[in-house]
């Protein structure tokens, strides 16, 4: 059968695929391969390194990787990002689940308005929300500190060393809760109402319905939002970068991606930046797929 098909028909799927493939290869695959190549290269300067011929590109083997993995700044930034993740992900998903259940419970008033109000911060770009929060964190221009001052309270600066991680986590939670709530809420709406009716006939309270029916059914969405949040956490960049000029406590290597940015564009060392980003990409890949593997069978079996 296949052999008798006209050429046009045979080629059709490839034609349809072509634009997507071309874009994927051009703007995803090739840059990744190029980054991999760069991560094994380095620059060698001869003499003063001034004028033509002062620098040559050479093979560097694994030295970029060795340097990036043994850099105390990098290790610190990884630890920081894990602490940040421990703060952000449970808080954000917990609030998203709570809001979704409240909206779904049918008792809340102004449901459409609340849904929009909770979702809206997600539509604010991270740079802008960081600037907004930055103003609120600076004692001299913040209405909160003004109120504390009027009440005679001495509030600690959120941009000081030990609190700055909460300041950044707060921005992420504020911006991310809405999106995750919508994902969970959507899957709550897809639950057939017979299940609730049956539960009520059995005498289940609203809380029991939530705990025994709703949450188990939305576990796959919770897992999906968890993986998304995990990836977003590892990639945190915009919030600390925007807040950095306002505070002494955020270094140029606060998060791993900030270190990549600094190496590439401030230190003009794209080679070690490439190596570090390959390490981050591999870690992200391992963590997300490792987690999916771990929970995958349990979570998705319930769907089928």
């Amino acid at each position: 059968m296949n052999r008798n098909k006209p050429l046009g028909l045979k080629a059709a799927p490839y034609l349809f695929l072509a634009p997507a493939m071309a874009l994927f290869v051009g703007i995803m695959a090739l840059p990744i391969v190029y980054a991999l190549y760069l991560s094994f290269r380095g620059v060698k300067v001869s003499g003063l390194g001034l004028g033509s011929g002062g620098r040559t590109e050479v093979w560097a083997g694994f030295s970029n990787y060795a340097r990036s993995l043994s850099d105390p700044d990098f290790v610190d930034s990884v630890i920081r990002v894990f602490t940040y993740g421990l703060l952000v992900v449970p808080t954000m998903l917990g609030m998203a689940l709570l809001f979704a259940l409240l909206l779904d419970s049918g008792r809340s008033r102004a449901r459409n308005f609340s849904r929009l109000a909770i979702f809206l911060p997600y539509a604010v770009p991270a740079v802008i929300s960081s600037l907004l929060w930055g103003f609120l964190y600076l004692p001299a221009v913040s209405p909160f500190y003004y109120l504390f001052d009027k009440m005679g309270l001495d509030a600690p600066s959120l941009l000081a060393n030990d609190l700055v991680i909460f300041a950044i986590a707060n921005i992420a939670v504020w911006g991310g809760t809405g999106f995750n709530m919508i994902v969970i809420y959507t899957s709550l709406r897809a639950i057939p109402s017979e299940l609730y009716e049956a539960a009520r006939i059995d005498g289940a309270t609203e809380r029991q319905v939530a705990w025994r029916i709703k949450i188990p059914i939305v576990i796959p969405s919770l897992i999906m939002t968890f993986v998304f949040s995990l990836i977003a956490t590892l990639q945190v960049f915009a919030e600390p970068t925007t807040l950095r000029p306002l505070s002494n406590s955020i270094s140029t290597t606060w998060s791993p991606l900030m270190k990549v940015y600094r190496d590439a564009f401030v230190r003009d060392d794209i080679y070690s930046a490439a190596a570090t980003s390959i390490v981050i990409a591999a870690a992200t890949f391992l963590l997300s797929f490792g987690f999916l593997r771990l929970v995958g069978n349990r979570a998705f079996n319930q769907e089928s």
């Binding site: 390194g49 505070s247 002494n248 406590s249 270094s251 140029t252 401030v266 230190r267 003009d268």
Partner: peptide
């Protein structure tokens, strides 16, 4: 020198800690 940017970003980080 040829790596002023490195010195300047090191200034941000190191004096950031010191001023804190």
């Amino acid at each position: 020198g040829p790596n002023v940017n490195t010195a300047y970003s090191a200034y941000n980080d190191e004096f950031g800690k010191a001023t804190e």
